[in-house]
Design a protein around this nucleic acid. Structure first.
Length: 883
RNA sequence: GCAGGAGUUCCCGAGCGGUCUAAGGGGCUGGGUUUAGGACCCAGUGGCUUAGUGCCUUCGCAGGUUCGAAUCCUGCCUCCUGCACCA
């Protein structure tokens, strides 16, 4: 057999030489798509294989359908990753260097050259990535490749941002992030030691006032309990401070003051406060104005939130038990309090909860026999139980005034809204977070941030409306999309570090990754003109983009002729017909992509179709978790060949699900490919064809249905279904056909095989080109026309007849199994109109059973039928006699 | 916590109101082919039964709707993903 890997290389060269993938406008209908631009901080991984192959399959399919297809890609270097990598190399980080060596076989010298040179890193891997895509057989127009740190591209981003700003979609604000004080920077999941999954949670602060006007800000996740608060707790032995916040004075724990300082730059620490002096005083409830005591709470954690806790003992088991304990406390005198003071505290029933009385906290503590704060585990469980029940099923009682009758979950939001002016907020990580450097992290409110206002109601509703008009494949994702759209809000679009384009009007900021990659597909069209016309970045000013992209104004920096060519190309190719990406971009990039098109371009240029696919796991493990042995796209190609790698990466599961890369699958696919190649190659060489019988009509009918299904599925990019039919279904039909015909083929079968190779060509383009040539066809199969479905050739009768043969084969086998002996003679008695069908299959049956098979019509007077089995014959079910 | 999903036979993985013991692989068992191994081909793979048949049981758990449920509804359990400065 030929070396199928050499074949791949040969056809890649042929394609390049003949430039068949370089697209120029012509009279055909166009189809414009692109691979999602990859981040080149390493070579492409196996996840890219899936997403990219899907795009390539659709591009190749459309090309064969007769469209003028433009498919291309570029690289995205914006952001911090390469900067961090280059820094780590400079610091001689062993893991980083080892990974680079293991995965990409780089030499020490090469690696050393990357130290503190992020640009060098990304440009190096851009070349690697390009190579890999070529090895994968991607049908791309490489004249349009760019990287997002090219100065020309930056000019495009300048224009985009100025345009957005003019339209009022960019504004300044503040933004909470999880922050490491030691590294002095926001800290992402991968930089964390503990609390990888922590998120920023917003905590409400109710401001309880002492008589002297000083505020005790109590933190809570349940602001609706304000109506039933009975007292406030301070830790008697913790360090508290008096701080100034704007015009107000607050008392908070020392730890809290330090955290709050990060969220409120105007906060000033004035003085240390002894909590003992505050305990025993009275504060007023900010909503009800009720007076209540400040009590000692040795159980509270002064480091959490503000160190001030409001107590709601009817619903919070902790608070209830704390008060119970306090009644018996011997320490009360220390705070000038008496047990009577505590006993006077009256619980207020706030939330109606089925199965519980007025005070659920009291009930559950009784039930669970909790009597002391030292029963920590039980208390936690009780708290969780009540909280969960109340959140989902609790109903607010009369005491809550206008919120009465609301569910607790609704009331929380309603209270926040109603008392917007009285409530304050602070932010905390949802769990403890520590940085890899060891320091504990907290939330910092970044000031003077620039935002793109994706929360803008009008803009959002435009997106929502247009989303309904767009095609989303698989339809499965549309719901997820709409849900994500509901949640998307203003997005901080600049950072202080990393590669990228400086914000045009505030150059100390750099536009971040997801914000400079929203409409980059436009740049594929422009980029092609830059080199040949020696256009400099400075020439690409706003006038240029306004003229070529929006058809507005005048541009004097670029020659008129070039300008109009670009404009012509843009009008021909745009909009993007198909955007395919992995699901990680669903919540962000894909939405921003639609948002920005809608903001900047007229409707005729808005994208048409979005498709999404799941991730790829490696041997059942997440790629990020399978340490060290991460398979790259390139090694997969080198091991199994491009055709196999491509096919395996899209065939294993349906697009909406995560798939799994298993070497075993790839090995099976290698077998399949070889079998396919040998089969078609043998057909190609066949000169002697057999006479046709029912199985030819059957095969033709089956192949027409298969082509039909494959075509329909590719239209929706249901790659798995399409592949399953055109690989496995077709193969199993051919196998039956060959079995039926003693491994011989007819002319019809060879023609069907030719169509089959065309179907396979989108998955396995290399081997298909080779077989195309073997079959004596001209030109590239990549440019051949997609097989047409002739529904007239779908022959239900022939299929049914073939089914009868199969069934009869089964019946005989079944009997043979039961009688358990080797047959010498087999007699089949068929109804008269089936005689021809069975008679032409007589040899086939004989061969299958290694016995002489005799076919008789039931009305044949000369038949041999000692046991009168012919009387059992029905249509499709011959009588059977075996000797 | 909020949001979006998933749980199918030994394993992977289809099916998403009747044609479902439930596609397709893999594994295992038997047979063929082969000098042998491999590869390849055929058959079997819940239980009982049978000259090509018939019955019972099964799709996370528990209920419900229906003439009929793996498929629809309700509740529960378990698992996965995202929640933003990270590409």
């Amino acid at each position: 057999m030929k070396d199928l890997k050499k074949i791949e290389n040969k056809w890649q060269k042929e394609w390049k030489k003949s430039k068949i993938f370089e697209a120029e406008p012509d009279k055909r209908k166009k189809f414009f798509t692109s691979l999602v631009i990859a981040y080149p901080s390493g070579d492409l991984h196996i996840g890219h294989a899936r997403t990219f192959t899907r795009s390539d399959i659709i591009a190749r399919f459309k090309r064969m359908q007769g469209y003028n297809v433009l498919c291309t890609t570029g690289f995205h270097a914006t952001g911090n990753r390469a900067v961090v990598l280059a820094k780590r190399i400079a610091n001689k980080d062993k893991n980083t260097i080892k990974t680079l060596k293991d995965l990409y076989s780089l030499s020490d010298k090469e690696i050393k050259g990357f130290a503190n040179k992020p640009e060098k890193v990304v440009r190096f891997f851009m070349e690697k990535g390009t190579e890999t895509l070529n090895l994968g057989g991607f049908a791309l127009d490489w004249r349009r490749r760019f990287i997002s740190i090219d100065p020309h591209f930056s000019k495009f981003i300048d224009w985009q941002f100025r345009t957005l700003k003019k339209k009022g979609y960019v504004s300044k604000g503040s933004h909470p992030v999880i922050f490491c004080p030691k590294c002095d920077s926001p800290i992402t999941q991968s930089d964390r030691d503990e609390g990888e999954n922590a998120i920023v949670s917003e905590i409400s602060l109710w401001k309880y006032k002492l008589d002297n006007g000083v505020i005790l800000p109590a933190a809570t996740l349940r602001p609706e309990t304000i109506f039933a608060i009975t007292n406030v707790f301070l830790h008697p032995d913790a360090k508290y401070v008096l701080v100034k916040v704007g015009k107000e004075s607050w008392i908070v724990s020392d730890a809290a003051a330090k955290k709050l300082k990060q969220q409120r730059p105007n906060l000033e620490i004035l003085d240390e406060i002894d909590p003992i002096n505050v305990i025993g005083q009275k504060v007023s409830n900010p909503v009800t104005n009720d007076k209540m005591l400040v009590l000692p709470g040795p159980f509270i954690n002064p480091d959490a939130t503000t160190g001030v806790v409001a107590s709601e003992p009817s619903d919070a088991p902790d608070d209830h038990i704390a008060l119970e304990e306090l009644k018996k406390s011997s320490q009360l005198a220390r705070y000038n309090l008496t047990a009577k003071d505590i006993e006077k505290i009256k619980y207020k029933s706030l939330i109606k909860l089925e199965g519980y009385g007025d005070f659920p906290a009291v009930d559950i503590c009784k039930q669970m026999k909790i009597t002391s704060l030292s029963d920590e585990d039980k208390l936690l469980e009780a708290k969780k139980t009540i909280y969960k029940l109340q959140f989902h099923k609790g109903v607010m009682k009369k005491i809550s005034g206008k919120f009465a009758g609301m569910s607790v979950s609704d009331a929380i939001e309603a209270v926040k809204k109603e008392y917007k002016n009285k409530l304050d907020v602070m932010y905390e990580p949802s769990e403890r977070v520590t940085c890899k450097c060891g320091a504990e992290c907290y939330i910092k409110l970044l000031q003077d941030q620039w935002f793109i206002n994706y929360g803008n109601k009008k803009w959002k509703s435009q997106v929502k409306k247009y989303l309904k008009e767009m095609n989303v494949y698989p339809e499965f994702w549309r719901q997820a999309f709409e849900a994500a759209l509901d949640w998307v809000s203003d997005k901080a679009c600049v950072r202080k570090s990393g590669l990228g384009t400086p914000l045009p009007w505030d150059k100390e900021w750099v536009i971040e990754t997801l914000s400079d990659s929203t409409i980059y597909m436009v740049f594929f069209i422009i980029d092609k003109f830059i080199k040949p016309n020696k256009i400099k970045a400075e020439q690409l000013n706003d006038d240029f983009f306004n003229y070529v992209l929006l058809g507005r104004g005048n541009c004097k920096t670029v020659p008129k002729k070039v300008l109009n060519n670009i404009k012509k190309d843009f009008n021909y190719w745009y909009p993007l017909d198909w955007r395919n990406s992995a699901k990680d971009l669903l919540n962000n990039h894909l939405l921003y992509f639609i948002y920005n098109h809608i903001a900047i371009f007229p409707k005729k240029n808005w994208p048409k179709t979005i498709s999404v696919n799941g991730y790829v796991n490696l041997e059942g493990e997440k790629m990020s978790k399978s340490k060290g042995k991460a398979t790259t796209f390139r090694t997969a190609i080198q091991t199994y060949g491009a055709d196999v790698t491509r096919t395996v990466s899209v065939i294993s599961t349906s697009p909406e699900q995560d798939s799994d890369w298993r070497d075993e699958d790839a090995e099976n696919m290698v077998k399949w490919r070889n079998k396919f190649y040998e089969l078609i190659n043998r057909l190609a060489k066949t000169k002697k064809f057999v006479k046709e019988n029912n199985s030819d009509k059957w095969l033709l009918s089956r192949s027409m249905s298969t082509i039909d299904i494959v075509t329909q599925n590719l239209e929706k990019l249901e790659s798995r279904d399409a592949a399953q039919y055109c690989l496995y279904q077709m193969m199993s039909d051919f196998r039956w056909y060959l079995r039926r015909n003693n491994n011989q083929v007819s002319k019809t079968a060879k023609k069907i095989a030719t169509d089959w190779v065309k179907l396979i060509a989108v998955y396995m383009p290399h081997i298909s080109e080779e077989l195309w040539k073997d079959l004596g066809q001209k030109g590239f199969i990549s440019n051949a026309s997609w097989p047409k479905v002739d529904k007239k050739k779908i022959d239900k009768k022939a299929e049914e007849s073939e089914l009868r043969i199969q069934k009869s084969l089964d019946d005989v086998q079944h009997i043979l199994k039961i009688i358990g002996k080797k047959p010498k003679e087999i007699y089949l008695y068929v109804v008269p109109n089936e005689l021809k069908l069975y008679k032409e299959s007589e040899d086939f049956f004989s061969k299958e059973f290694s016995a002489r098979v005799h076919i008789y019509a039931v009305n044949d007077k000369n038949k041999y039928d000692p046991e009168k089995k012919s009387s059992k014959a029905k249509p499709g079910k011959p009588g059977i006699y075996i000797e």
